[in-house]
Design a protein around this nucleic acid. Structure first.
Lengths: 351, 351
DNA sequence: TTGTACGCGTTATCAC
DNA sequence: GTGATAACGCGTACAA
């Protein structure tokens, strides 16, 4: 039954000035012990809390971090947010979230809304559409307005800002090397369109690993999936694409998928075709989810450490926000991936 | 290269008063057409945007909704947020997120931070710990401060507020009925501790379905999982519990799990024991995730419609925020569940 | 030791 | 038509 109370009300109630109350509450020795005690007790009783909006206006800082992601119903992004949230909370920051839904327009709208004095800084992963359109004016303006940006995962190389990325190329290389080490030589790459950096880099890692081992790349074994629609439809379409490859190139003995869904689907398709996993065909995928742990056989993955990415991005941003003299220097943090070996790959054949 | 610009700066630049600028920008006919045009052009050129913080202070409304959830790396909650976000964005609201991590203290801290003039209203699902401690002072205070609350999923019956819940009991009843219809009679319930409403209600639905069909409940077939720790460890422990039941009661022919993980795990355990799914044992689970679609066989589930829950909660809240005369009336919306039939259950035996 | 005045950016009211 | 003023809630430099 206590409505919000302000300094002014306390002042009137206790018959002192507002600034006396303000000082008393910050325990300013200029105020007599007696008054301090009295005011503090009163404030405590009425559960006084400084109005954050007023403070934000005064301090020109909202202690709030904006986060814009393409999609929240996605384990990777959820993990990133959890990392951001944890760090932010520990440093006294709030997290304001916008979801672009892979749309350029919504990304721009969210950026403008958030940057408009609502957040001190922005963490974002650009939408697919933005990658395609290559229109980054909203990001430039944000930075010009003095709001620092940290990009993660899907970064834009043309924009100068702090970045947190995964060692995509290296992660892929390691994954494919693992397949090769366990005896695979006809390795299918389940990738995405190249306009996404992750699609490009992961393909590059795949190619590097082949080259390292003097295996010629087979174009038939590189497919770029670009399915759209609802989940069930996408699944069907992926299944079909994979099926076609298996039909065309019967001696496929390894699959490297750029994400978990593709990996699981490949695994299921292979088994439906009567192939044993991992005996006949091994599967590794990049991963951001929970599917790999629960599939049968469980899926060997390249762990992206989403939570760590989020935490790193938040630390980078808060550090920038809290250092006075901002020389124009930008950091790029590369989060190392890690292969989590499960049952969809064979142990390396030692000699 | 345009730093933030304020009314004051425009006024000085154009040598008029601040209020003239303010009026001109809102196209007030009191200002001469000439000046209006000039000011508007100038403002547009410098990309003027009213400072939201100042507006919040003035209007005593932040156009921001606070959301507190126990866990964000969880498909169900991610979906709820996506529903909230979508509705909020369409109504011009922002979403501020706090994650309690199932901790009472963190829930309280987040509540206090958010309610402290930062948000106009709160949407929340209480943490497990809060359910156990039954300490709801932070929620009461929030409401007393005039900040409306909408609870979803994990609600607190002692607190009067709007609610969005799933028809847990009915959903469970339907699921178990489905198992019975397809010929099951020894149905294992994989539940959780009763202090969570969802645990209690889902068990109740299970019991109701049995009773409806004159099947006596077997205590050995009702287990309450309460695993904690990291994901892999939890998984092992669940597997073991399920294994023990199968060993003790060999004629189990159906499993009803209160969540997807338990369902998938049961499915995997059954198959590892050489049982065929769905021929020997059928499995149905409540679901909030993506596992069910990708498992083999795919899992029949009770869909919770998380996104719809979020959207409904947001609508309820915004409606309350935007209606002037708030009579003390609270709504409880029940979101209907829906059985999504996949391959872990047999088709009903017709006669 | 306490109070006054000012500014953060905005809008609304009222005077000129 | 236009501008000065007050108010939202706070903190702080400065005056008393």
């Amino acid at each position: 039954m206590k409505p919000k109370i302000t300094l002014k009300q306390i002042a009137r109630e206790l018959d002192v000035s507002i600034s006396t109350v303000s000082k008393a509450l910050r325990n300013d020795k200029a105020i007599s012990q007696e008054k301090r005690d009295k005011i503090q007790a009163f404030a405590k009783f009425y559960n006084y809390r400084p109005n954050k909006i007023a403070l934000s206006l005064k301090n020109r800082s909202t202690k709030t971090i904006g986060v814009i992601i393409p999609e929240i119903v996605h384990h990777f992004f959820a993990k990133v947010i959890s990392g951001i949230e944890e760090v932010a909370a520990s440093k006294g920051y709030n997290v304001l979230i916008g979801v672009s839904n892979e749309s350029f327009d919504r990304e721009v709208i969210h950026t403008e809304m958030l940057v408009n004095s609502e957040v001190d800084g922005l963490i974002l992963s650009v939408s697919k559409e933005t990658c395609q359109l290559q229109d980054y004016h909203h990001l430039r303006e944000t930075i010009n307005q003095g709001v620092p940006i940290v990009m993660f995962d899907r970064i834009v190389e043309e924009i100068k800002c702090d970045r947190v990325i995964v060692d995509d190329t290296e992660g892929s290389r390691k994954a494919v090397q693992k397949l090769i080490d366990s005896g695979c030589s006809n390795i299918l790459l389940l990738g995405t369109k190249d306009y996404l950096n992750i699609g490009r880099y992961r393909k590059q890692g795949y190619l590097e690993a082949l080259e390292d081992n003097d295996i010629a790349a087979n174009p038939d074994l590189i497919i770029k999936i670009d399915a759209q629609g609802d989940a069930e439809a996408v699944l069907k379409s992926i299944e079909q694409e994979i099926n076609e490859v298996f039909a065309k190139v019967p001696n496929v003995d390894g699959v490297f998928a750029v994400n978990e869904i593709y990996g699981i689907t490949a695994l299921n398709v292979a088994r439906k075709r009567g192939l044993r996993v991992p005996e006949d065909v091994s599967v590794v995928s990049f991963s951001d989810g929970v599917l790999s742990m629960h599939s049968r056989p469980s899926l060997t993955t390249v762990n992206q450490h989403g939570k760590q990415m989020g935490a790193t991005a938040a630390l980078l941003l808060i550090e920038k926000l809290e250092t006075e003299f901002e020389e124009e220097s930008f950091t790029t943090k590369v989060i190392q991936t890690e292969i989590v070996e499960r049952d969809s790959t064979r142990k390396p054949q030692l000699a």
